[in-house]
């Protein structure tokens, strides 16, 4: 029997209205996005792109915090926008967020351990205070902390790295199947960053948890991901195996991102200078490929029609590229 995938994003579009009734404009933040995470194999899927690529909006829709304008998001085969009552509670337990800035995620006037107890009790998971305590200790242990580290402390008493660990521990209390981590390390110092990334990797391998890792940082995305979806102006332009995409990119946008990555090696400096592209705010309005105006290979048809999705088989895996160059 074919089990439904853990998460299926089907042709999802989100349109934001900007401004008033008369002069307002529409901005398509996410456009016809399709993604699948299978249940059998837990993976880390990275959503990468520049600011304004729609990666955060997509993450919020997967968490159920934002409704898609059209399309469906299915969790184990059920549309999350139609979930009610107990079913919705179950979904909220099984899909948990980790946010960018842990200092904003916690109330600064509330002790951190009260948060953890609150999570365990409000979800109806813990039968008693002792039971809650045990659950909290377990999830803190997973992220490399002990209960004594957090007991009675306010958020400002932690370093960014520690507090981010606590916020991951909070997410783990309800034993989720899917974590949506939106830039979880961009606020964390370099010497502590890899600690957080390694926790996410361990969650995948030891606890069979799938993770959606939203980032602009291609280096950590390479380190952590199994699959990657490169987003540009609301559309996924390249989607498939992370190793393949980041070492042999096909879409010109992925190539540009990788070329502009400042590599931490003084022997590999950029040789030629890139041209500074002027005002890019009009990119959203291009009917064809949104990258066409910056693309060195752009032809007339790229500006007029949206490039079709092309499946490219690479051994057992396939990768999807939205570009006329490969049709």
């Amino acid at each position: 029997m074919n089990r439904p995938p853990l998460l299926e994003v089907k042709d999802v579009t989100r349109v934001f209205k900007i401004g008033g009734l008369v002069f307002g404009t529409r901005l398509t933040a996410v456009e016809n996005v399709n993604l699948t995470i299978e249940k059998e194999r837990s993976i880390v899927l990275s959503l990468v792109g520049e600011s304004g690529s729609g990666k955060t909006s997509l993450g919020r829709m997967i968490l159920g915090l934002l409704k898609p304008t059209s399309g469906q998001i299915l969790y184990e085969g059920h549309d999350i926008s139609k979930m009610k009552g107990k079913h919705l509670d179950f979904f909220k337990q099984k899909v948990q967020p980790v946010f960018q800035n842990p200092f904003e995620a916690f109330n600064p006037l509330k002790k951190v351990d009260r948060y953890l107890h609150g999570t365990a009790i409000n979800y109806g998971l813990a039968k008693s205070r002792d039971h809650a305590q045990k659950m909290i200790e377990e999830s803190l242990y997973t992220v490399g902390l002990t209960y004594d580290n957090v007991a009675g402390k306010f958020p400002h008493e932690f370093s960014g790295g520690e507090l981010q660990r606590v916020s991951i521990a909070r997410a783990l209390i309800s034993t989720p199947q899917l974590l949506v981590a939106d830039e979880p390390v961009s606020m964390i110092d370099a010497s502590l960053r890899m600690g957080i990334i390694n926790i996410l990797l361990d969650l995948k391998s030891k606890y069979d948890m799938s993770i959606i890792y939203i980032t602009h940082d291609l280096d950590t995305a390479y380190y952590i991901s199994d699959e990657i979806a490169v987003m540009n102006r609301g559309r996924i332009v390249e989607y498939g195996d992370a190793q393949k995409i980041l070492t042999e990119p096909l879409h010109p946008y992925t190539c540009l991102l990788l070329e502009c990555l400042p590599e931490p090696d003084p022997e590999k400096r950029w040789r030629e200078r890139i041209k500074f592209s002027g005002i890019e705010t009009k990119e959203f309005e291009v009917p064809g490929c949104k990258f066409a105006r910056r693309c060195p290979h752009a032809k007339d048809e790229c500006l007029k029609t949206r490039p079709p999705r092309k499946e490219i088989k690479e051994g057992l895996k396939s990768r999807y590229v939205d570009c006329f160059m490969y049709t």
């Binding site: 502590l192 960053r193 890899m194 600690g195 990334i197 280096d219 390479y222």
Partner: peptide
């Protein structure tokens, strides 16, 4: 030793070896 840690812990594309962070906090 601090610089060595910083340089070794940098993730790089094409290098999947496990990177560790410095223990403790500043």
């Amino acid at each position: 030793p601090y610089t060595r840690f910083l340089i070794q812990s940098l993730p790089k594309i094409g290098d999947k070896s496990r990177k560790i962070s410095v223990s403790g906090r500043p």
